[in-house]
Amino acid sequence: MTEPPNISADDRVGRVAEFRIALQRFERTSDQVVRRSGLTPRQHLLLLALEGRHAGSASIGTLSRELLLAQSTVTELADRAQAEGLVERVVARDDARVVLVRTTREGARRLERALAALDRERDRLGLAIGDLDAAFPRVSGPASPSRARGRASDR
């Protein structure tokens, strides 16, 4: 990758550091905001996965893969969320052997409250991402498979 014009190596390292700090700040602030919205950070992730990726319902196995958590951990998380009225379990329409976790109105309400409260933090993180992108411009969009192979072979 060629050196971007007008950005020194020190500035690039500084921008990476600023991004990493912004990411950590976002995570910490998110956890605090989410808790004030009546959710734990993991319940927030569960509801984000359900609402943002699966139109409100998904199996424990699917959630486990996406959240990078063991199935037993997701089951316990769903049990606690269900006890709080955030999710419910329903039988899949197309396969009665499959039980889905589905967001309730209360879960959707708390998630929406958390999302609204996080607007400013998402904006800050977006600015940090923009600064990082400016320090590392792409020559032709996202990394192509040949560029990715080249990086892997450098190891």
Rank of each mutant, 00 (worst) to 15 (best):
V90A: 09
L46D: 03
A92R: 11
D131N: 09
R105T: 08
R155C: 07
G61Y: 07
L111S: 05
V98I: 15
T104A: 10
S144P: 00
R36D: 10
L69C: 01
V16S: 11
A135Q: 04
E3T: 13
R65L: 12
E18G: 08
L45Y: 02
R147Q: 15
A135L: 07
L111Q: 03
S72W: 03
E76M: 11
G150C: 08
R28P: 00
Q82L: 06
R15L: 09
I21F: 07
L86V: 02
S30A: 15
E51P: 02
L46P: 06
T73G: 01
D11W: 00
P142W: 15
T103L: 05
E76F: 02
L48E: 09
V74P: 04
V91F: 06
S64F: 03
T75H: 08
R97F: 03
R53D: 12
E88Q: 11
E27G: 14
R105N: 07
T29V: 13
S140R: 15
G107Q: 04
P41I: 13
S153E: 15
T2W: 00
S59G: 15
L132F: 11
T104M: 08
L132I: 11
S57M: 10
R120H: 06
L45E: 14
Q32Y: 00
G14Y: 01
R25M: 08
T29R: 11
T73Y: 02
R65Q: 08
E84Y: 06
H44K: 02
L39R: 02
R28C: 06
A58R: 05
R12P: 00
G150S: 13
L46T: 03
A83M: 06
S57D: 11
S72M: 10
V33K: 09
L68T: 09
